[in-house]
């Protein structure tokens, strides 16, 4: 077992973990952050995307021990959990019907936030490429793209950043 200290959604966590423990299992089964789901074995689907030290990563393809000393932000820490306290990206996904079953949504939102941090005013093509690491089976992506465009407009208008 290895001792690790990780900040998860602003809270300091300390645990002894097996070296092979995947970060996503650490988040879900140890810390209890079950809002980040798992959709594949090969890092293709992006459902497990979280922010690690300010960058989007796939938490199924990182070991918990590699997160030692780092800062993880999940969908659960992106904003408050009441409707009046949503991140602009969350709000935009709801406004634009950018989700159906919602399973890909946490990862999609975290990837989209990261995209806008690097490129606050992306074109449609840049949005599509920016979320190419996240698969959705319900929406056909049409409304997800609209949601990211809407969030970009709203965030550049209000100066909000993730």
């Amino acid at each position: 077992m290895v001792s690790i200290n990780v900040t998860v959604d602003g809270r300091s966590e300390s645990h002894d973990v097996e070296p092979r423990l995947l970060l996503v299992h650490y988040l879900r089964d140890v810390v209890g952050k079950v809002g980040t789901p798992i959709g594949c074995d090969t890092s293709n689907c992006g459902a497990c995307t979280v922010s690690f030290n300010g960058q989007s990563i796939k938490s199924c393809s990182m070991l918990a021990v590699q997160a030692d000393g780092g800062d993880v932000l999940t969908i659960e820490g992106l904003a408050g959990t009441v409707e009046t306290d949503l991140h602009p990206m969350q709000e935009a996904f709801r406004e634009c019907h950018g989700l159906q079953c919602g399973y890909c949504t946490p990862g999609m939102i975290m990837a989209a936030c990261d995209l806008l941090k690097e490129n606050p005013n992306p074109s449609e093509a840049e949005i599509r490429e920016g979320i190419e690491g996240n698969l959705c089976r319900c929406t056909g992506y049409h409304n997800i793209v609209r949601a990211v465009q809407t969030a970009a407009a709203s965030m550049s208008g209000t100066g909000v950043s993730s």
Binding site: L22, D41, C60, S61, L63, V65, Q66
Partner: peptide
């Protein structure tokens, strides 16, 4: 050797590789 792990960790998950030791150089 484990660097970013983006090739290695999927291989470990599928148990296509089962090394005895992982040396993390990150």
């Amino acid at each position: 050797i484990l660097g970013g792990g983006q090739s290695l960790i999927p291989i470990l998950r599928l148990r296509l590789a089962t090394p005895e030791l992982i040396v993390d150089v990150s």
